[in-house]
Design a protein around this nucleic acid. Sequence first.
DNA 1: GTTTTTCTACGAAATTCTTCGTAATTATTT
DNA 2: AAATAATTACGAAGAATTTCGTAGAAAAAC
Lengths: 149, 149
Amino acid sequence: MFYALTFVYERFRKNCFMEKNALPNPTDAELEILNVLWEKGPATVREVNETLNQQQVDGREIGYTTTLKLMQIMTEKGLVQRDTSSRTHEYVAAFPREKVQNQLLQRFVDSTFQGSAMQLVMQALGNHQASEQELQEIRDLIEKMERKS
Amino acid sequence: MFYALTFVYERFRKNCFMEKNALPNPTDAELEILNVLWEKGPATVREVNETLNQQQVDGREIGYTTTLKLMQIMTEKGLVQRDTSSRTHEYVAAFPREKVQNQLLQRFVDSTFQGSAMQLVMQALGNHQASEQELQEIRDLIEKMERKS
DNA sequence: GTTTTTCTACGAAATTCTTCGTAATTATTT
DNA sequence: AAATAATTACGAAGAATTTCGTAGAAAAAC
């Protein structure tokens, strides 16, 4: 009895830790949906699903209800918010892209670069091309950091 | 009949794609073990397990056979190699740390920064402290990149 | 030499994440 | 208004990952 409710509550609790602005880590599939929402702004499940299927490199089709279910879970977790006033719900990302990127970045740096963001920066620089404009932006940033310390 | 062998082979095949130097993506738990092996050099299951448990922040103890099983799977995948000449096996990472880091970095950039390594670099720089020495290293790297392009 | 400890192998449970099928409801088309 | 299509809710299957328990062999301690 009440199993369903227990599970739903569990999903909420585990991802909020009772904090106000806590942002639960999105899974890979959830992040893909967030990327669509950040790019396109408010969107329906149908729109998100179709975008995902266009992006799909392998022929592999993602079922409509798969996307629906994920977005329902994301609503529970607080990753997205939705407008349910009409039958077809509209979804938006609940957090700014940069905030989520930074949280994932932190986790990645910890797991893969022993917490050293600078080591990550150097490897990323060493293994990728950069345009003149990007290099200039980075130089500016470094100069700003110099002055700070 | 032969189920076990089939599974084992499957694990091998899926992670090698029949290529010579293909490096399978380690999972999170596997990466933690690789980190220990990179830090300490050749080590036994017991040593790895104890190191992991020391690092453990929550009290949560990782069972010995859990680590053992993971390292056996990693052997099948080709992530580690082991010396089985004595009863207590010695394990080493099969790939250099940088190579694995770069592969994971590429995946992370794709999933979280739309493939833009430079955007990742700028966010990482913007949100972390850096020592004077690190800043100098980055400046050198950028200069080197300038000359290349 | 017997008991206890340590080690590997391995199946399988537990957990987390992803995918889908079905039912019920509302909207649209004919 | 009847039939068709679209939408949500939701349980549950499927897949990937992590964890552990048990068995059997080897080594160490007694």
